[in-house]
Write a protein that binds this DNA or RNA. Structure first.
Lengths: 165, 165
DNA sequence: CAGCCATTGTTAAACCTTCAAGAACTTACC
DNA sequence: GGTAAGTTCTTGAAGGTTTAACAATGGCTG
């Protein structure tokens, strides 16, 4: 199916092309906007912030690296670099996992927690201003539904990234 | 409004939180997926591909740097680096702009055009598989509407980036 | 036309991401 | 229990992005 030269590619209809255009614009602008907002107000990019959020919600503010990577939808390699940086900031520390000697836990430090709590209101405000204050409740429902369908189609099964690709 | 400590941040409702989660997952997974797809099949990241597409649609396959950056929603700096790389590949060349001595045009070469035409079918197929084959026509309409509303709120007015932020 | 401010595009440095490879450990199986 | 295969996490290098600063030019205002 992906080996044949694909005799006649099914191009996008006008509606589809328009939707795709809008999607690309919105997602690029939003991601850039949030990255800058967080870089300015909290000294880290959006993805890193997301990692702290995950950790803050985890049982004892700790989580196995792989699980964290899965939740955040990033590769283990990327996470490894990210945690290294967050560790330098003193916001996270690594600990050996008791039950599996290969494993590492990332632990959100008190200082990391403070940074997160300080950044959260501004971030939520930014997200709200960019999305939820601009959409009707029905649209929010539709968005969730649409994104869920998309994410479903992109989830697991792949080479080094059991979940990505 | 952004100066006051924000007495009581309006957190996200459960529905909003769910939608935001879905959105983040879908957009991260999709962007990663397309980046890999294009890197593998065309030797460039998704953004670079988008630049070639823009150029291919422009009048004489050329466009002013700033205009290209605006259309692609990226900074001039990022574009500058990107075009430098594409130029190394021989897919784009820079030309002085006749009417404004500060200006540069990016021109899509014949080779660049070939690369684009070769990559297009696979890319469209990937986009289709990830989105349009998974959504109903109504959902596609909703998506466009939602993204348009989001993009509208994020458009222009800013410091070094007259359009971004 | 002189002065001043805005715009255009680039650059260097710091940072982030990807990719491929590898070290350490676990599991399954004989 | 020993070996092969799989899992977990890290690393270094290559490449992409951001930020701030800059040179060159344009355009406005008096």
């Amino acid at each position: 199916m992906s080996n044949e030269p694909a005799a006649e590619p099914r191009w996008l209809s006008d509606e589809e092309q328009y939707a795709w255009q809008c999607y690309l614009h919105a997602t690029t602008l939003l991601e850039d906007h949030l990255d800058r907002q967080l870089q300015r107000d909290a000294g880290m990019p959006h993805v890193y912030y997301g990692l702290l959020v995950q950790l803050s919600r985890a049982p004892r503010r700790r989580m196995r690296m792989t699980e964290l990577a899965q939740n955040a939808k990033i590769t283990r390699s990327r996470l490894s670099h990210a945690i290294a940086r967050l560790e330098k900031n003193g916001w996270v520390v690594r600990e050996d996992c008791p039950s599996d000697k290969r494993g590492q836990n990332a632990y959100l430090t008190d200082e990391g927690m403070r940074v997160l709590e300080k950044a959260a209101p501004g971030h939520v405000a930014a997200v709200r201003a960019a999305i939820f204050d601009r959409l009707s409740p029905e649209q929010i429902g539709h968005l969730a539904e649409i994104c869920r369908a998309m994410a479903d189609g992109l989830q697991p099964k792949g080479a080094d990234l059991p979940w990505l690709r």
